[in-house]
Computed example of a mutant assay.
Amino acid sequence: MITPVRRFIATCALATLGAALAACGAPGTPRAARPAHPASSSATPSHPPTLAPGPAGLTPVFKNGPRTPDKVVALTFDADMTADQGERAADGEHFDNPRLIATLREFKVPATVFMTGRWVDEYPRQARDIGRDPLFEVANHSYSHYAFTDDCYGLPTLPEDKMQADVERAYASFKKAGLPHAMPYFRFPGGCYDQRALRMLSGVGVTAVQWDVVSGDAFATDSDAVARQVIEGVRPGSVVVMHCTRSAAPATEPALLTIVPELREQGYRFVKVSELIGAAAGRR
């Protein structure tokens, strides 16, 4: 397992809570006006860039963009609602975070949102709203948020013969919700993958997207600590993994109020994952 995965899971505190990492939402009521900043190009490519398959056709894995003088960084947000959390949602647990999405819009920050199909089924309007906003791009985080390897920090494990179907089911949920053009990018639940998982997903045609900066926002309550970890970890071409849920990552939105201005002050430009993958693949 790569080091960022270990650091990410460590922030979860209890393995069995990994399944609860959650989610994004629809636009909420904006706070008092914040300064607007120019964003990068937010148009979704008509032919999204992907990486070439690995040896023997294995699903390629993307961790970060080129380390060039161009100071760009991609913020990514995981919408981690698992297949068995319907009762918790029915009881009032919020797996969305409207204020976080509103903050990204106020600051004009492009972002990539990795949604589970189960989350999209629960929040189709929010998913559609995010996916139709050119500031954002939507990518696949599996349908069930079950693990694609054994012993993935307490997550239930998908059988090998169910892996491809689980990813395809998520795309089906996207289409049903009115998101027919989700990006061909996939993030493994828990960040856990192995050669078997990469082989089983080779037929889907996705690029697996990991990260090189762990925000530490899962279950965190100290927004200053989250902001500091991101700011200190970012390098040109970085991919930052974050979450957007009111129940399991309450410090994320307040942390953005520090992260965005500080990184812009350092000369960073926020981009979507597709721009970094395009640069890595030689496309501009």
Rank of each mutant, 00 (worst) to 15 (best):
V5M: 14
R6M: 06
F8E: 05
I9T: 12
T11L: 04
C12R: 10
A19V: 09
A23F: 14
P30F: 10
H37E: 15
H37T: 09
P38S: 11
P38M: 07
A39N: 01
S40G: 09
S40I: 02
A43N: 00
P45G: 02
P48Q: 04
L51H: 14
L51N: 13
A56L: 09
G57E: 08
G57H: 05
L58M: 01
L58P: 00
L58T: 03
T59H: 06
G65W: 05
R67P: 00
T68C: 00
P69C: 05
P69K: 05
D70M: 01
T76R: 04
T76N: 09
M81T: 14
R88T: 11
A89N: 14
A90Y: 08
D91P: 00
G92Y: 12
N97V: 10
K108G: 01
A111S: 14
F114K: 04
M115P: 04
D121K: 15
P124T: 10
R125W: 09
R125P: 04
Q126A: 13
A127N: 08
D133F: 09
D133M: 12
P134V: 06
P134N: 07
L135I: 12
L135P: 05
F136H: 04
H141M: 03
Y143T: 09
Y146T: 02
Y146V: 12
G154S: 14
L155W: 07
T157I: 05
P159M: 05
E160G: 04
D161S: 10
E168S: 12
R169D: 13
A172G: 15
K175I: 11
K175V: 09
L179P: 04
H181A: 13
M183Y: 08
P184I: 08
Y193W: 07
L198C: 05
G205P: 05
V213R: 01
S215G: 14
G216E: 09
F219M: 05
F219Y: 15
T221L: 12
D224V: 13
D224I: 11
A225D: 10
V226R: 06
A227S: 10
I231C: 12
V239Y: 04
H243K: 06
H243A: 02
A248L: 12
A249C: 14
A249N: 13
E253S: 00
T258P: 01
I259G: 04
R269S: 11
V271M: 07
S274M: 00
G278C: 01
G278S: 10
G278P: 00
A279H: 00
A280D: 06
G282I: 05
